[in-house]
Design a protein around this nucleic acid. Structure first.
Lengths: 113, 113
DNA sequence: CACCATGCTACAAATACTGTAGCATGGTGT
DNA sequence: ACACCATGCTACAGTATTTGTAGCATGGTG
């Protein structure tokens, strides 16, 4: 699958709008998960595999290449880590953590009725 | 694919943490796109298909069921629309729009060097 | 130089998504 | 009442993506 570059046609959109490239990227299995798990700090390939619990090395590597090309992560001696842009992106999505808790709660309440 | 309910084991995580259910959901093809395209207002099935440009009706329907079960969208006479929770979720991710523009810009600058 | 850990690739099996056709239902016009 | 149309959605075969396991290559350690 081609890396979703802003400005190009991506999966689901021919317009080339950056948001569409981003949604394509984040909609790929594990993209969000990798970013999420990396925010706790740099990790080596094998450690990242463990943080993600169940990702296959093949796909992990594929995603890492995509994220690196799109400058959301970078690899250093300490392993993979979020880039400056990656940190920014994480800052936007980090409220999902607490939002998801209240959402889970609401679903639970609902199911009681 | 089973609907990622918080509290259950989901794709990529056995912990049942709500955030993992959410990341599983949002990481599925088109989930984010549907939420994104719905924020501009209610849409009928066929109109949503058009907003999404290239989604297959099979998958659109699958995603709509998931999102409905998880109470992020609801269907009314006017068509599908974001639920209260869906609007909340969108509020969190909406900064991705402008973030993606500056990201696209940065990638472009980079490629000039 | 044996031993081990790490980063990563190979590849077949399993799963998810697409694309096209088309059915069922509920209007609208005549 | 009846042809005509749009809509919501399903069927299903073909294609693309993801998983799971095995294992290779490289570099460090005793």
């Amino acid at each position: 699958m081609a890396i979703p570059l802003p400005g190009r046609q991506v999966r689901g959109s021919t317009t080339g709008k950056p948001i569409m490239a981003l949604l394509d990227l984040l909609g790929r299995t594990w993209s969000l998960g990798i970013i999420w798990h990396l925010h706790t700090g740099p990790a080596t390939f094998r450690e990242l595999q463990q943080r993600c619990e169940k990702i296959s090395p093949t796909l992990l590597n594929t995603r890492l290449k995509e994220l690196k090309t799109l400058q959301l992560i970078e690899s250093q001696a300490s392993g993979y880590q979020l880039s400056h842009q990656g940190v920014d992106l994480f800052a936007i999505i980090s409220p999902l953590g607490s939002w998801s808790s209240q959402w889970a709660q609401a679903l639970k309440e609902e199911s009681k009725l």
